[in-house]
Amino acid sequence: MSETMADRKVDRSQMQVSDEVAIQIAGMNKWYGTFHVLRDIDLTVNRGERIVIAGPSGSGKSTLIRCINRLEEHQQGQIIVDGTELTSDLKNIDKVRSEVGMVFQHFNLFPHLTILENLTLAPIWVRKTPKKEAEEVAMHYLNKVKIPEQAHKYPGMLSGGQQQRVAIARSLCMKPRIMLFDEPTSALDPEMIKEVLDTMIELAEEGMTMLCVTHEMGFARQVANRVIFMDQGQIVEQNEPEEFFNNPQSERTKLFLSQILGH
């Protein structure tokens, strides 16, 4: 896995972490019916931090980041994103959502709109940006993810990797302060994973606050400044990547790492 990164020298010089808090989660619990999916989560993310969340499937890692933009509702505890607390107040939810970008495993582009329309939709309707300006911004980000020539095609005509890069650009068009990635490369062919990871590394180099649920441990090693390991709805271990991979403390983490890195 790490060889997909081998040819790229990651520039960590810009990746400064500030003291300012971007996300504060305290004593957060969530249930699906009677099933306790997230248990006493405490997590503080500073601005500029790149966090990789790993763990076996069903450990609650996706649910955790989906709580941060309220795609899932938590039942107990506190989530403060960018100074706004997430409650059932719809105004707060919309405010947080327009500040937090999200990239999904299955891209979730809008198939009835062209790539350009996908990118300009939220800036025009949520941010009230004039259409022309929104299109300029959209083209800027399409250039950044290296597919400006696809602007007038429909999502169905693009490869998976291209679609995921469009999805990243779509989030960036809203000028988010935090980006959430929910297994962004899990639905991609091996050849396309690299192009998406490269885009994400570039984003990290620019100092974006990022939370990534991913199984790409090479990415975690090179980009993350913290790796969080989750199991059974709780944070089992967190550490700097070097320490996390070379010197895991808990038995559960050791088992997990041996299973995903062992082949």
Binding site: N69, H106, L121, W125, M174
Partner: peptide, 27 residues
């Protein structure tokens, strides 16, 4: 419609009527 379409519309900060009108209803 896939669940993801609702989620993507929500995640972009579109409110109920806008996401219905622009994303979900046309599809």
């Amino acid at each position: 419609l896939p669940r993801g379409q609702y989620e993507a519309a929500d995640a972009l900060g579109l409110d109920y009527w806008k996401s219905q009108r622009l994303i979900l209803l046309p599809q």
